[in-house]
């Protein structure tokens, strides 16, 4: 007999593929996907069937007013609607519930004793959580685009800042906005993931992450704090609008991306170090 089972390979434990299968069949995954499909449909139905369809949107950003101009505009409006809260919750859910739910099902101890190396366990969890979040975002974008293509025609992007774009530029701008919003989701994702490692209660992890994001947003709305608010990672959540001008203005988006990535790295780093040394009692 050799020291270990001949066929054991730490790199083959809990592969992303296996973890994806484990997560994909969960109801909450399905619910997230269904929400991403439903949101554009509900909005289209409201616009088309509502009693006062012409008055749709009159926000401070005319993006909403332009929602029905074409599929690119509509998709951007959906992103605006979803990025505030829905996507935040979904990101928090996919990363916040992932470790804590394994703890609450008692499956974590069996995986870790299988043994799945602890860092590999977290790695698969993070990657799959991010994949599912990204897939939800893409489902939202794709559904919104296709639905709007049928309902509102195929006019290219009209900018709320003035001017309109050709089709290639419309795709480019939609891509930039989607990518930026996706990257901003790293902030709730990171907070939720750390919480997930710190607690064994899945809802607690998700709730705590959402709560922290809400508190950050409240602080961000306090004018008295002035420029101090620029230190909040969530301060740059809406900077993607800078991608809608005639020229893409990268300044704020560059800061926003940097903040999100660094925040995520710090939080996941803390989570990894904490998990390394954690006594698994669940």
């Amino acid at each position: 007999m050799t020291a270990t089972d001949v066929s054991y390979n730490a790199r083959a434990t809990l592969t992303v593929r296996v973890e994806l299968i484990r997560q994909l069949r969960r109801r909450r995954t399905l619910v997230a996907f269904v929400l991403a499909v439903a949101l554009p449909l509900i909005v289209v139905a409201a616009v088309k069937l509502g009693p006062d369809a012409r008055a749709f949107g009159d926000g401070d950003l005319d993006l909403v007013g332009l929602a029905t101009a074409g599929p690119w505009n509509f998709t951007l409006t959906m992103l605006l609607f979803a990025s505030g809260f829905l996507l935040t919750i979904i990101a928090a859910m996919f990363l916040g519930d992932t470790v804590a739910s394994e703890a609450s099902w008692s499956t974590m101890r069996y995986l870790l004793a299988a043994p799945v190396p602890r860092r590999r366990f977290l790695r698969s969890k993070v990657i799959v959580g991010l994949i599912l979040t990204a897939v939800t975002l893409l489902i939202l974008v794709a559904t919104a685009f296709v639905v709007a293509l049928f309902v509102f025609g195929s006019a290219p992007l009209t900018s709320p800042l003035g001017g309109s774009f050709d089709v290639a530029t419309s795709w480019q701008r939609l891509g930039i906005v989607t990518a930026y919003i996706g990257i901003q989701l790293l902030i709730p994702a990171g907070i939720a993931f750390l919480m997930s490692v710190l607690t064994d209660v899945p809802l607690g992890a998700v709730g705590a992450a959402v709560l922290i994001v809400i508190i950050l947003n409240i602080i961000d709305a306090i004018d008295a704090l002035g420029d101090l608010r620029r230190l909040l990672p969530t301060d740059y959540g809406a900077a993607w609008v800078d991608a809608l001008g005639q020229q893409v203005v990268w300044n704020d988006m560059a800061i926003g991306v940097s903040y999100a990535v660094v925040t995520f790295a710090v939080l996941v780093g803390i989570a990894v170090l904490r998990f390394d040394r954690k006594d698994v009692l669940s």
């Binding site: 020291a3 008692s106 870790l112 004793a113 043994p115």
Partner: peptide
């Protein structure tokens, strides 16, 4: 995560 644990089957404090 010691690799030798792959030679151990465990059932601890109830199923998961």
């Amino acid at each position: 995560g010691a690799p030798v644990l792959s030679r151990v089957g465990s059932f601890i404090e109830g199923p998961g």
